[in-house]
């Protein structure tokens, strides 16, 4: 197997895992949301990579173009980006309320307060 042929996918896997790591390993709630953001964006990069056809061009029809990249992943990811920002804004709204209620957004400080 040609290394280059799968290089994109492997890099994207690394990106996803870096984002995923931030979500799990960090205790700051905003940092968790940032990690989630990176994780999702990396999945978008994966989808868009699968739609690429080498030598193709953007899928806007024109009589002098023969080969186009696949438009369907683009459509799906447009929707997914919107879902991502919707989740981020709801998450941040929760963080703001958590801060108002606990005076902190660090996971272990909040847990400590909850136990009392």
């Amino acid at each position: 197997m040609d290394i280059l042929s799968h290089f994109n996918y492997w890099v994207v896997v690394v990106l996803m895992m870096l984002g995923f790591f931030i979500v799990i390993a960090r205790g700051n709630l905003i940092k968790k949301l940032i990690g989630l953001n990176i994780f999702q964006t990396s999945v978008f990069i994966f989808y868009i990579s699968t739609g690429k056809v080498i030598g193709g061009s953007a899928p806007v029809l024109s009589s002098d173009i023969q080969l186009y990249s696949n438009p369907l992943p683009h459509v799906l990811i447009l929707t997914a980006i919107v879902v991502g920002i919707a989740t981020t804004s709801v998450g941040l709204a929760l963080v703001l309320r958590i801060y108002r209620a606990y005076g902190s957004i660090e996971q272990d400080e909040i847990l400590e307060q909850s136990r009392q």
Binding site: L29, K32, T87, L94, V95, I98, A101, Y102, S114
Partner: peptide
């Protein structure tokens, strides 16, 4: 106020 934490954890 723990409802907020529950909602956030569920969101993640």
């Amino acid at each position: 106020r723990r409802a907020l934490i529950a909602a956030f954890n569920y969101l993640i």
